[in-house]
């Protein structure tokens, strides 16, 4: 059985999107769906405001373990997905800078690669322990997510000792 490349990484370095793609593909792949998130300097939706920069921090060992879990969940749902990259950049990041990168590779584009990458970023935002502090004209504030993992999605032995 072939094993596919999986990259799960927290890094302070600039994200090299081309290099990450190169690392997860094989000669049997014909499609890669990629998502990258940016620091948004001007927010117009919901509560409009401006952002000077974001300070990201991570609980690195757990974050990388949770990224592996996200990759496992993707492969459990879509057996057409081959290589997977899930990378979060941390530290001080300015507008227009890529902060996160999700890529899913597959032999063909019609094999749910788009859905798989979408699932990857949505799930990262739910369970991967990374936080950002927003610094703007109005001051500094930690951004808090709104998702709480449940006992159902964790390992049964951890619910009760």
């Amino acid at each position: 059985m072939t094993t596919f490349s999986t990259i799960t990484l927290i890094t302070e370095d600039e994200l090299d999107l081309n290099d990450l793609v190169k690392q997860i593909v094989s000669s049997a792949d014909g499609a890669v769906a990629m998502f990258t998130g940016l620091v948004r300097g001007v927010t117009r939706r919901d509560a409009p405001h401006e952002t000077d920069y974001l300070e990201y921090e991570a609980y690195q060992p757990m974050a990388e373990a949770m990224m592996k879990q996200v990759a496992d969940e993707i492969r459990a749902q879509w057996n057409t997905i081959e290589g997977i990259a899930i990378v979060q950049r941390i530290g001080r990041l300015y507008p227009c800078t890529p902060t996160v990168f999700i890529a899913c590779a597959s032999p063909h584009r019609d094999t749910d690669v788009f859905e798989a990458a979408r699932y990857g970023i949505d799930r990262l935002k739910q369970i991967v322990p990374v936080w950002k502090k927003e610094i703007g004209p109005g001051g500094k504030e930690w951004v808090e997510g709104d998702y709480r993992p449940t006992a159902l999605e964790t390992k049964p032995h951890l619910i009760k000792a």
């Binding site: 979060q88 996160v100 990262l124 935002k125 369970i127 936080w131 950002k132 930690w142 998702y147």
Partner: peptide
């Protein structure tokens, strides 16, 4: 211990 996550 940490708040609900906000990565991405």
């Amino acid at each position: 211990l940490f708040p609900a996550v906000s990565g991405g």
